[in-house]
Write a protein that binds this DNA or RNA. Structure first.
Lengths: 197, 197
DNA sequence: GAAAAAAAATGAACTAGTTTAAGACTTTTA
DNA sequence: TAAAAGTCTTAAACTAGTTCATTTTTTTTC
């Protein structure tokens, strides 16, 4: 069966961990909602309860919090083939501390909380899919939380460039600074230093 | 049915997310290995392939890496009712960068990789258990990786004390410094400052 | 329970990263 | 397409956290 591009992308993402029959694929796709966000528009704002978990089929978004001084701390950038959202807010139905803003015109597939619960009843294989997906995310967050504490800002920048070369060129230096955990001024210094090396 | 203390502890831990029949409980327990480690002994050393994922029934352990300069970076403390190990090494059968050392005489239940795989075949409910366990761990690592980058050392210390009051008193200040990501000297200063407040 | 080893405290000199401010460059918007 | 808004660069003064060295206190070991 032939699917549209965004559906092929999400089905391939899922096929990394589990095999679905045609019928299951169609059932799964029927549980998703298509969402478009313009550049600079918000997908989520602090105080909201997360209505969806998102899969990005096109574009780029940043997930961030604002601290007491109003300074942004970016926790992730999400591009095509990535999952994003606030899983704590989504699961516990409590207000999120996050903002999610499109840095490019973006297209997403969202699964609502009701459909997420339904999914496990209708296609129990998805327990395995999410078990493995969360396991992999966990592995990378464990690494990131250690790096955040044990590496210098310069090392974190070099590591980010090595790990996400496709993202570096799509985001501003200022946002990258917000992710690395330093000021834009210091980010500028690091970049000119690293480029000089 | 009456179980020994360590078995009751792990069964209660699992019962937070899934219900098992008596038969399933017995099957599950049969897949576990009992492990004891003396204070200062290693459960795992860098270069090993992780043979088990562990549940702690008694004691306290620290999980850490050594950087190029030989300085320890502690990624977690594990006490009774906690799960630990190196999930990346365990899953991918590749060498671990971690050391796991008992800071007290400790007792654990381990599940081997072969039995972990068997578990999902024999009791598919465990997909759900691990899906939720990994989801919860993910939520706390997401928070920790953000805090590691956006909070000051003093704030991280206060946060650790608030979140793990039962652990603070069981570990040395030096190890806590290795977890917070600062030198023992600076940890000492922070503690005397915070206590003075 | 004495001796040895490890942990904790303190202080002075140092470095990674911040703050503030100002000018140049780039992108967005009317 | 001009003006406004946002991003990037540079630099000087500052602060959070490190390093090194020494002393005191606590824990471990025989």
């Amino acid at each position: 069966m032939k699917y549209k591009e965004s559906h092929t992308l999400i089905l391939n993402n899922i096929a990394r961990f589990i095999d679905l029959t045609e019928l299951e694929k169609q059932k799964y796709l029927s549980l998703l909602t298509e969402i478009k966000v313009k550049k600079k528009a918000f997908l989520m704002q602090a105080g909201d309860v997360a209505k969806y978990e998102y899969f990005i089929t096109k574009g780029c978004l940043k997930v961030y919090t604002l601290d007491e001084d109003g300074a942004p701390h970016i926790s992730m950038f999400a591009v095509e083939d990535y999952w994003t959202g606030d899983i704590a807010s989504f699961m516990m139905k409590k207000p999120t501390p996050y903002f999610i803003k499109a840095t490019e015109h973006s297209e997403l597939l969202g699964i609502s909380r009701a459909n997420y619960d339904l999914l496990f009843q209708e296609i129990p294989k998805f327990e395995k899919f999410y078990r493995i997906l969360y396991q992999k995310s966990l592995i990378s967050y464990i690494q990131r939380s250690n790096h955040g504490i044990s590496l210098t800002a310069e090392e974190r920048y070099i590591e980010f460039k090595r790990k996400y070369p496709q993202i570096v060129n799509r985001i501003t230096q200022k946002d990258l600074a917000g992710y690395i955990g330093i000021t834009p001024e210091f980010m500028s210094k690091i970049i000119s230093k690293v480029n000089r090396m």
